[in-house]
Each structure stands twice: as structure tokens, then as C-alpha cells.
């Protein structure tokens, strides 16, 4: 059987961030935000354009995010060289970007995600909230790999946060668990409004 009790999940994917409180195999409160990995890449492209007058591609932006992206100051400075086109002269150039720059670039998106988590916390029934306080917020999805994001969310919400092991594959592993135990877990499937019977 599915365990009774509330769990809060924050799943930061590529296109959307999902924030949900679930209990007994159903969703209690949930928000889907269109701010996630892709938007963070855009943030970095915008930042590099405004600060360094340089145009970079989406893949470069993603590489920067993965290599040195963070939510709170790191113990040691990290930096990396990036190449792009100078917007003033039009010729290629190389600059060094550091973790502080990237943190500033990402701060807006991360702030929005954290504010939405707080909104969800406010909407959560108190009994479930006490479960969540005990078990902590579960962080999943590729976005959870941003350094110190768990620390930042924990500081801002005053709820402990734990990142799930191998966060990139958490959703598909979950579908696997449902498939392997379909007799038990039929209830977690989403019902359509028509007569389609469940598995």
C-alpha cells in the first residue's frame, strides 16, 4: 500500500518545474511553473549579453549552468572560459565567467521557484505540513543539480530539503515502480474524463 502522509515534491525539469504536495496516491496541491532549465539557460544568455556584450548559444549557456551554476556562494570560486560573438565589434571573443556571475544570472528564476514553493506551503493543510516538516521537501529533476539549491530552498522555506538519488531519472523510475506493481498502484494513474478503463 501507499504510505499515508504528505510529501512535497519539487521537480525542476527542462520546460516546467512541478511543485506538488501528494498524499495517499493523490495530488493535494500543485503548481506547474514554466520556469525551469530552459529558462535558466535563457537567463545566462541574457546576462552574458548585458554584462559582457557577447552573444552565446543555448548549448554554451547550458554548459555554463551545469559546470558552475549555483544558488548560494560556494566555498571556492569556480570559473570557466566561454566563447561567443562580440556584439559591438562583431568578431569572436573569449571571456572568463565565474560562479558569482552565473548565480546573479540564475537568481531571478530561482527566486520565482522558491516563492512558488512558499505559496504551496501556505496552501497546504496543516496536518500534511507537519508530515512535510518531518520528511523534508523532495527535490528531483535536472534543476536539482544546481549547486546548493537544496540549501537555498531549505533556508528560504525553513523546511529541510533532500535531493533524490539520481534526480534526472526519478520520474521514469517512478513509472517503472508503478508498472511493476500495477495491481497495487492502479489508483495513482490519472483518469481521463471519458470512459477509458484503468490498466
Amino acid at each position: 500500500m501507499i504510505q499515508a502522509g504528505g510529501n512535497m515534491i519539487v521537480d525542476i525539469g527542462g520546460g516546467t518545474s512541478e511543485i506538488a504536495v501528494i498524499s495517499l496516491g493523490g495530488v493535494v496541491v500543485a503548481r506547474s511553473l514554466r520556469i525551469a532549465g530552459d529558462e535558466m539557460n535563457e537567463d545566462i544568455i541574457r546576462f552574458v549579453r548585458d554584462e559582457f556584450n557577447m552573444l552565446i548559444g543555448e548549448r554554451t549557456a547550458e554548459n555554463i549552468k551545469i559546470a558552475i551554476g549555483s544558488a548560494t556562494p560556494l566555498k571556492a570560486t569556480m570559473e570557466m572560459p566561454i566563447r561567443g560573438r562580440d556584439l559591438v565589434t562583431g568578431v569572436p571573443k573569449e571571456i572568463i565567467i565565474n560562479d558569482e556571475n552565473v548565480r546573479e544570472a540564475l537568481s531571478r528564476s530561482i527566486r520565482i521557484i522558491v516563492n512558488t514553493i512558499r505559496t504551496i506551503v501556505e496552501e497546504t493543510p496543516p496536518e500534511l505540513l507537519s508530515d512535510i516538516m518531518q520528511k523534508g521537501i523532495i527535490l528531483a529533476g535536472g534543476g536539482s543539480l544546481i549547486r546548493n539549491l537544496d540549501v537555498f530552498i531549505a533556508d528560504e522555506t525553513e523546511i529541510p530539503v533532500c535531493t533524490i538519488e539520481d534526480p534526472l531519472t526519478a520520474v521514469v523510475r517512478g513509472t517503472g515502480i508503478v508498472l511493476e506493481n500495477i495491481e497495487d498502484l492502479r489508483e495513482v494513474l490519472v483518469e481521463m474524463e471519458d470512459d477509458r478503463p484503468l490498466l
Binding site: 501507499i2 504510505q3 510529501n7 515534491i9 521537480d11 525539469g13 512541478e18 511543485i19 506538488a20 501528494i22 496516491g25 495530488v27 500543485a30 520528511k135 523532495i138 528531483a140 529533476g141 533524490i164 526519478a170 520520474v171 521514469v172 523510475r173 517512478g174 513509472t175 515502480i177 508503478v178 506493481n181 497495487d184 498502484l185 495513482v188 494513474l189 490519472v190
Partner: peptide, 13 residues
Amino acid sequence: IDEPMAAAMERVY
């Protein structure tokens, strides 16, 4: 299945 539900499956089941 709702994605957050799937992501949490390991913890709740």
C-alpha cells in the same frame, strides 16, 4: 501519471 507523483514513488512506495 502526474510527474511529481512518479518522482515521489520511490519514497511513498
